[in-house]
């Protein structure tokens, strides 16, 4: 089972990015093999439609959950139709390794 987390950097102690479409990095965490992959977001500085680009990236890795601060109005409808679970964490100071630890409950 793969989970995507939006991140502000490509390190373990980077904090979660509160934005989905314009996050700096996308962290793909595999709960079975415990592998972590950092992918820079190609749509970070896009003028518009940054979200769908980011979704494509996540979809290409077959994630079933996405953790971010907030999801935009276009994103919610898209992810809903793709049956991907959205998790909103409104704490900008939480670190990536803390989230991964929580996922290993």
């Amino acid at each position: 089972m793969k989970v995507a987390i939006t991140s502000t950097g490509n390190k373990e102690d980077s904090t979660i990015d509160q934005r989905f479409g314009r996050c700096a990095y996308l962290v793909i965490y595999d709960t079975v093999s415990k592998s972590v992959e950092y992918i820079p977001n190609p749509g970070k500085d896009a003028e518009e439609d940054a979200g769908p680009v980011c979704i494509q990236l996540a979809a290409s890795r077959n994630v079933i959950k996405i953790i971010s601060g907030e999801f935009g109005i276009k994103i919610k409808a898209l992810l809903d139709s793709m049956k991907v679970q959205m998790i909103m964490l409104k704490d900008p100071d939480i670190k990536i390794n803390e989230i991964i630890e929580m996922l290993n409950h």
Binding site: I67, D80, I87, M88, D91
Partner: peptide, 19 residues
């Protein structure tokens, strides 16, 4: 953990936090 999440599998009841 004060997170908000949705339930894409509508027919299943939510029992625990996915995080």
């Amino acid at each position: 953990c004060h997170c908000d999440f949705n339930n894409p599998a509508k027919e299943l009841q939510v029992e625990m936090c996915p995080l």
